[in-house]
Design a protein around this nucleic acid. Structure first.
Lengths: 228, 228
DNA sequence: TGGAACAATTCTGTATACAATATCGTTGAC
DNA sequence: GTCAACGATATTGTATACAGAATTGTTCCA
């Protein structure tokens, strides 16, 4: 991975990652309240550690911290959703280009393995896991590009996209975007940078257009807030 | 500002901002140790709050947290420096373009005011403040683009750039980049997006080439690490 | 005198306790 | 019966206390 071995508190980071995974796999719904006591009890740590973990997640925009009111799984607004994909459109195509130009056989194999896992998850009727893996595919590409800063940004954007898709996915469109990923792998295998750039560009547009961004579904965090 | 009024703990955020400013203005040198007790005493808060503030700064990559060893003002490596400017090259030109196309008279006036402040700081022999303001000029452009996510990224990158410039600035080049900022303002006043994009692109290249990225100066955090 | 092992100190990591704020239920008045 | 105000409860914000790790200073031996 990109993170150095011992950078922050181990306990809080471990818990933050566990919670992030739960969010990605949609076991924690957007808007869910994350009580400090409750989380601490689940993981067997004190609120001190939980607060640090929640702060990390808040920095990644996966949870929303509200003063004196607690932490909630983020519910991206329509605007935030557009902005996230706007940022991805700036970062990912060019990153895919340089990644494709750098990619070696091992990198291509890794991508193929990812795609296979994605297919397996779909076959096993685990759509949430398939969605998570399809996001990790993008993260993997950023890793191949070997630019830690951009990698961090893309990771964060992909994580937020998971929430966005959970909220705004149009049920009527099928979950069949793996074609795009397949084409990307081909471009990587051929070290065809410009093709990878174009493919990523249109893939992101497709993704965005598969969302229904007309208004925010109220998966309310509380009835009170749902109705105001 | 873009931040919602009450998002995180107020005390830790306030302290994090104060420390960030100190870092930007080079009153805290790269590599300086930030003892929790000491910081807490300065700001009159307990270590709990200080730790939260340090964690925020670590997320912005302004400080380096080392397990069981404390927090230090970050010392970007040569590689990190390149990566930061690589990310800026992906984000800022396109952002400048849409900002220029959106900019109204008020926005242009704000930019002019920034530039004037920058000149004033230079005239008053406050190079650190001038440098900080020249960074804020880029942040202001991102704000005009009205994309919160990109704004956050650019803010972080500009902040890190401040550290990078502090470490890698070649003394022999003059601090006269305000010409580029002036030209950018003209493009904004004319709502000339493509021109703004090109100007930003070359401005960033100029900035990068004004650095000496051959090797990292050892402004060591400790003698031990300086010599190994 | 040089070096290594050990002890003392300092500092971070975590847990717990207390204070402040928000939420929720109840009571009372109109 | 509705609304407002008040009190009880729960949850977050902060400080303090304790435990563990790393650093530093000392001592002892070769």
């Amino acid at each position: 991975m990109f993170e150095s071995p011992d950078r922050a508190d181990p306990a809080s980071t471990r818990i933050a990652q566990a919670m992030a995974l739960a969010i990605h796999e949609h076991r924690l719904a957007p808007g869910a309240k994350l009580s400090e006591d409750e989380v601490g009890e689940v993981y067997g740590v004190s609120r001190t550690v939980v607060r640090a973990a929640l702060q990390q997640l808040a920095h990644q925009r996966l949870v929303d911290l509200r003063r004196n009111r607690g932490a909630y799984v983020a519910q991206p607004t329509v605007r935030e959703a557009r902005e996230v994909f706007e940022a991805r459109a700036l970062l990912e195509p060019r990153t895919a280009r340089s990644a494709a130009e750098r990619a070696g056989p091992g990198d291509v194999a890794t991508l193929r393995a990812h795609l296979a896992e994605e297919h397996a998850a779909l076959a096993q009727e685990e759509p949430a896991r398939a969605l998570y893996l399809s996001g990790q595919f993008h993260v993997e590409i950023a890793r191949i590009a070997d630019q830690a800063t951009i990698f961090d940004f893309v990771s964060q954007l992909v994580a937020r996209s998971s929430l966005i898709i959970a909220l705004y996915w149009q049920r009527r469109t099928a979950l069949c975007e793996s074609n795009a990923h397949h084409a990307l792998i081909d471009a990587f295998a051929a070290n065809d940078g410009p093709a990878a750039e174009e493919l990523m560009k249109s893939h992101l547009l497709d993704l965005l257009s598969s969302l229904d961004l007309r208004n925010r579904p109220s998966v309310a965090r509380s009835l009170r807030e749902a109705l105001e």
